[in-house]
């Protein structure tokens, strides 16, 4: 079954910021939402370095590298492109984060649709 689960208002995520939500129903890990060049992107908080994926922050909502140019996995320092989710440096070079589709209400609330268990990264 699918149902929309609210995350927050789009305005609550400023340019260059990331936040973690969940874990939500149907997802084995948190969902990372970030805003880059004005656009919101959402990724499963699961570094593809190990099977099943491991959580990437070093602290609550701390998902970006020091320069705030990439998503960073703070297990082994892998860096991911914020727009494509591709690993550009580190142990899982060339692999990708799992993208999560977002929907937005007319009022600007953002939601994820809790589908069946999401596909493996």
């Amino acid at each position: 079954m699918t149902s929309a689960q609210p995350l927050c208002h789009a305005d609550e995520i400023a340019e260059g910021e990331a936040r973690g939500f969940g874990p939500l129903e149907g997802y084995r890990r948190k969902i990372v939402v970030l805003r880059h060049n004005g656009t919101l992107h959402a990724w499963l908080d699961a570094c593809p370095h190990y099977p099943g994926g491991t959580p990437m922050a070093w602290k609550t909502d701390a998902y970006l590298n020091g320069e705030k140019t990439h998503i960073a996995c703070h297990s082994h320092g892998a860096l991911f492109d914020m727009e494509t989710g591709e690993c550009v440096l580190g142990p899982c070079l060339g692999q990708q984060l799992t993208r999560i589709a977002l929907t937005m209400s007319d009022e600007g609330e953002i939601f994820v649709t809790a589908a069946q268990e999401e596909k493996r990264a």
Binding site: P55, M56, A57, W58, A62, G66, C73, H74, S75, H76, G77
Partner: peptide, 9 residues
């Protein structure tokens, strides 16, 4: 073990 901002556990 814990994640860290030093790029290792």
């Amino acid at each position: 073990y814990f994640n860290s901002p030093l790029g290792c556990h």
